[in-house]
Computed example of a mutant assay.
Amino acid sequence: MDAEFPVMLSAGEALTDMIACGHGQWRSVVGGSTWNVARSMAKLGLATGFAGAVSKDLFGQELLRASADAGLDLRLLQQYERPPLLAIVGESTPPDYFFIGSDSADLHFDPAQLPTGWSSRLQWAHFGGISLARQPLAGKLLGLARQLKAQGVKISYDPNFRNNMHADYDATLHEMGRLADLIKVSDDDLRGLFRCPDADLAFKQLRAINPAATVLYTRGELGASLHIEESVWRADALKVAVADTIGAGDASIAGLLYSLFMHPERAPENHLRFALAAGAAACMASGAQAPGLQQIEALYKGPYKKN
């Protein structure tokens, strides 16, 4: 029934992080920027779907199991007899990645195969990550974003810069920027996306693409800012014991989407602080984490005050 379809969506890549842990040892962890966002929203209690494709081997089966455990709508997750997509994480803080996935399952995602009526309840759809830099998947996702935007769904976009985003990504950056109601970007993202060492100058270029979009601008230990038209709210970073920063940005945008959807009455500075609390909570354990609402709210209610 339509009532059972998700109100939140994240579309793109689900992959396996292979994390170096010393002396030739590696640890595999389910991940992927857009999948992390989906899992985080579901962990917070939102009816969420992840639209993407995974392999049928042990890596894909683990992603399927983790998706089920997170409470994601499995009807939107496709599986193909193709190789898995792997992220090789040589360093965790700051994260240093490269990707292995020629003709991998994620590239075969087919929006036309999603169930009839699947988007009838959608309020927000999130896009980003390396999925928008990998063809033919990127073209399919751009088409899906256009379709949902026309349908009245709000669009969230986190480019999440990686080294496979070259000058040929610029057209995607501009189109997604124009479609987006909400953009999340870090200072490192800005330097890479605009090939500019001055992150603040690059931020002005981003804002020029779509001045009407709300922007969450994160700067690590320097905190973050929320930009709504001409107004700006700033907040300091939370002081927590950091295991690593993998997935912190994904948790922060998921936290902001949760706050916007569940608490529209909140002042912008409190939306920002909830997003920072979600990102900080994700840093407190190694690997990409989906922190729970109780943990996030404990951090949010600590140094911060909310409505």
Score class of each variant (00 low, 15 high):
Glu4Leu: 11
Val7Ser: 15
Val7Gly: 07
Ala11Glu: 03
Gly12Lys: 02
Glu13Tyr: 03
Glu13Trp: 01
Ala20Phe: 13
Gly22Arg: 06
His23Leu: 14
Gln25Lys: 13
Val29Ile: 15
Asn36Cys: 08
Val37Ile: 07
Leu46Pro: 00
Leu46Lys: 01
Lys56Ala: 02
Asp57Leu: 04
Phe59Asp: 08
Asp69Gln: 13
Leu74Asp: 14
Pro84Phe: 00
Pro84Asn: 03
Ser92Thr: 15
Pro94Gln: 08
Asp96Gln: 13
Ser102His: 13
Ser102Phe: 06
Ser104Leu: 00
Pro115Ile: 09
Thr116Pro: 12
Trp118Thr: 08
Pro136Met: 06
Ala138Met: 09
Gln151Asp: 06
Asn160Glu: 07
Phe161Asn: 04
Asp168Thr: 14
Asp200Thr: 11
Ile209Lys: 08
Asn210Lys: 09
Pro211Trp: 10
Val215Asp: 05
Tyr217His: 15
Thr218Asn: 09
Arg219Tyr: 07
Glu221Gly: 14
Glu230Asn: 15
Ala241Leu: 07
Ala243Tyr: 05
Gly255Pro: 07
Met262Gly: 00
Asn270Asp: 15
Arg273Trp: 00
Ala275Leu: 08
Leu276Thr: 03
Ala282Asn: 12
Cys283Leu: 09
Ala285Gln: 13
Ala288His: 06
Pro291Ser: 11
Pro291Cys: 10
Leu293His: 11
Ala298Asn: 11
Lys301Asp: 12
Asn307Val: 13
